[in-house]
């Protein structure tokens, strides 16, 4: 009785300490995150970050193969953070481009108006 309790305690401790299962969900999330980044143009706007995300995802998968689940999870986390960065960088670049284009169009509009005013006078 006392012995089995010790075993349960040990099992719990082990479970808490290190992963015994592959981080399948984490990998799925990371893949989704990479796809999202690709969809908003990460290849163009954040090529380094998206490449890093893909590389780390592959590394994570290799670690799962080697049953190094704890390392695999960490690497997946790093892949994820890179995918997020790639996504936000792309969105940011697009927003800044939009600002630039809007400002240009306003300038063009103002020039046009000035021209019209001048030609009507």
């Amino acid at each position: 009785m006392k012995q089995s309790a010790t075993i349960v305690l040990l099992a719990l401790l082990f479970g808490a300490c290190s992963s015994t299962k592959p981080p399948t969900q984490k990998l799925t999330q990371t893949e989704a995150s990479i796809r999202q980044a690709e969809q908003v143009g990460a290849e163009e706007y954040a090529p380094l970050e998206i490449r890093e995300a893909r590389k780390k995802l592959e590394q994570s998968k290799d670690l799962v193969e080697d049953e190094k689940y704890e390392e695999a999870k960490r690497t997946a986390d790093q892949a994820m953070v890179n995918a997020e960065l790639a996504q936000i960088k792309s969105l940011s670049a697009k927003a800044q481009k939009a600002v630039y284009e809007l400002k240009q169009s306003i300038q063009a509009l103002q020039d046009e108006i000035q021209k019209n005013i001048n030609s009507n006078q």
Binding site: L85, I88, K89, L91, S92, A95, Q96, A98, V99
Partner: peptide
């Protein structure tokens, strides 16, 4: 980047 995007 988020800050830059929001500002933009």
């Amino acid at each position: 980047e988020t800050a830059k995007m929001n500002a933009a």
